[in-house]
Design a protein around this nucleic acid. Structure first.
Length: 309
DNA sequence: CTCCAGGGATCAG
DNA sequence: CTGATCCATGGA
């Protein structure tokens, strides 16, 4: 491969690693530090980051480059939004200092729906494995040897038993229902895009296995609605610890507080908090592993900065 | 071995 | 309406 065939894109403030590993997307491979293959729908790309530049590591057509520019949301100005989120909020300031390179991906609707149905009560590495096997068994092979994510038509060939065989467990029933409703038009991407967020959410939740949290993830990552605040166990922990003095708090109150603090950008704020929470937990585990021979008395120091405003 | 995971359906009151 | 329980599976 000659260098002049590769495109390089200047993306100040963007972090490929943070964005890919922030739990929004499930179809990627990490080759080495800052170097990833990413799949979305029938698209595939290999990227590397050095400093503020993103390098396309293979020949890429203009159309493909444009696809990924949109996918990674590179044209949006994030600085002003971050400033707004951090105004009078030291906690968010800290979260942005840890994961401020994250972008909200513009993912394919159907793939996002399937991915987050699988996500329920599941680990991210395992979600990735199931998504990979679904692609290998039902998606169109690409020249690279990877597979496109299957279309609804292709996935219609999969029975509940097939999904279970691929490791989906009790979610197999949810997957066949989602495929059927999308295929029949009972859930329609076009209608979802036209509808206001509340109506779109209600339509998504007609799918068995899609509750509030999964619907919010699909709205945020698959339909570009930033005015949602997907609240999973991590976000609940973070919000309670950081904004409610560690007190147990109901879902409605958490979401009300998120709207009050972060307004129309609370989807992005949620992603910063999610990454911050998981990142600090990984740091804690690393530290605990290192100290496990020295009888350390638990409580390894700073859980998280406690958070008045 | 037990515990838990980017929850939701179902059942019990 | 709220709250407890169950759900498959595999990695820690």
């Amino acid at each position: 491969m000659r260098m002049e065939e590769c495109k390089s894109v200047f993306c100040p403030g963007f972090s490929l690693a943070q964005t890919i590993e922030s739990g929004q997307c499930f179809r990627w491979k990490k080759w080495e530090e800052g170097r990833y293959t990413v799949l979305s729908g029938a698209h595939q790309v290999m990227l590397a980051q050095t400093g503020d530049s993103i390098l396309f590591l293979e020949e890429t057509t203009q159309a493909e480059a444009a696809y990924w520019r949109n996918y990674f949301d590179w044209d949006r100005e994030y600085d002003k939004i971050k400033e707004r989120l951090c105004r009078r909020d030291r906690v968010m300031e800290k979260a942005v200092s840890v994961g401020g390179g994250i972008r909200i991906l513009r993912q394919e609707f159907f793939e996002t729906l399937i991915g987050f149905i699988i996500s329920q009560n599941n680990h991210i590495p395992r979600i990735r494995g199931i998504m990979e096997r679904i692609s290998q068994n039902y998606g169109t092979p690409l020249e690279s040897g990877e597979f496109a994510f299957p279309t609804p038509q292709q996935l219609a060939a999969a029975s509940e038993e097939d999904f279970r065989r691929l490791g989906a467990g009790f979610r197999a029933r949810y997957l066949t229902d989602a495929v059927e409703k999308v295929l029949s038009g009972q859930v329609s991407e076009e209608r979802l895009r036209q509808a206001d967020t509340a109506a779109a959410k209600a339509e998504l939740m007609t799918i068995c296995g899609v509750g509030e949290k999964v619907a919010d993830c699909v709205l945020l990552f698959g339909l570009g609605r930033w005015e949602v605040f997907p609240t999973d166990v991590w976000i609940r922990r973070m919000m309670e610890q950081l904004y409610f003095r560690g007190k147990e708090t109901g879902l409605k109150e958490i979401q009300k507080e998120a709207e009050r603090r972060f307004g129309a950008y609370r989807g992005l704020a949620q992603q910063y908090l999610f990454y911050y929470g998981r990142e600090s937990q990984q740091e804690r585990r690393k530290r605990d592993d290192k100290n496990k021979c020295h009888a350390s008395a638990g409580n390894g120091g700073d859980p998280l900065p406690d958070g008045g405003v």
